[in-house]
Simulated scan of single mutants.
Amino acid sequence: MRVNEDTVLRGLRVLLVPYEPHHVPRYHEWMMSEELQKLTASEPLTLEQEYDMQRSWREDNDKCTFIILDAVKWNQGYPEEQCMVGDVNLFIVDPENTSLAEIEIMIAEPAYRGKGLGEESVRLMLFYGASTLKTTIFQAKIGQENIKSVQLFSKFHFEEVSLSAVFKEITMQWKVTDEEKKKLLDSFCVSVESYKQIKDMK
């Protein structure tokens, strides 16, 4: 999605940056993992196909993707590829109406799991969806066995709305009220910055 091509969402422990071609080799390494393929219901791609996918996520109006960076490493001057820990996405159900979106989160680096980075990344993405894309209904489709993800989205008031026995998948949903939106926008530390500017400063 072009709308976020120069957007950085900075929290306390993570930075969300647009998915760029230089991220692809590391992302491709992640997706060779059978564990991640299972958790994300993905098929392995060639490196060339991964580059094609990155271009699609950048150009298509129904996909909004950010790479999750470790803010501590970033601030210490590590190369961006070495700061990568996962990704977070919004898939717009109808590009003409951004009020409904499906959210996905992946912490690909095992050492970063269970440390709150996923929770902060989801919060930043909900903030971005509600404030910039005007999303008012968020959905998450989660494998039944992925208890940690179910627990994560439950923290954000997502509730189970359906269960697919065929796909062994739970659909959770959060309808954002005006009061909840205000709390989301006001209750935590986030700054929205220019990706080009922060790269130039590094």
Rank of each mutant, 00 (worst) to 15 (best):
residue 39 L to S: 07
residue 165 A to P: 05
residue 183 K to C: 15
residue 48 E to V: 10
residue 142 I to H: 00
residue 146 N to T: 12
residue 108 A to Y: 05
residue 118 G to M: 00
residue 132 T to M: 14
residue 127 F to E: 05
residue 103 I to K: 00
residue 96 E to R: 10
residue 161 V to Q: 02
residue 143 G to F: 05
residue 194 S to R: 10
residue 146 N to C: 12
residue 37 Q to F: 02
residue 128 Y to Q: 08
residue 27 Y to W: 05
residue 178 D to Y: 06
residue 54 Q to I: 03
residue 201 M to C: 14
residue 152 L to Q: 05
residue 137 I to E: 08
residue 196 K to D: 09
residue 130 A to T: 15
residue 87 D to R: 04
residue 33 S to D: 12
residue 185 L to I: 12
residue 96 E to Y: 04
residue 66 F to I: 00
residue 186 D to T: 15
residue 117 L to P: 04
residue 132 T to G: 10
residue 53 M to L: 14
residue 101 A to V: 03
residue 16 L to V: 03
residue 2 R to K: 14
residue 49 Q to Y: 00
residue 109 E to N: 11
residue 79 P to T: 03
residue 193 E to M: 15
residue 90 L to S: 00
residue 160 E to G: 06
residue 10 R to I: 03
residue 52 D to W: 02
residue 189 C to K: 10
residue 23 H to E: 03
residue 15 L to Y: 01
residue 122 V to R: 01
residue 154 S to F: 14
residue 200 D to Q: 15
residue 152 L to H: 07
residue 158 F to A: 02
residue 77 G to H: 06
residue 122 V to P: 02
residue 201 M to S: 15
residue 112 Y to C: 06
residue 112 Y to R: 05
residue 31 M to F: 02
residue 3 V to F: 10
residue 2 R to L: 15
residue 42 S to L: 07
residue 80 E to F: 03
residue 81 E to M: 07
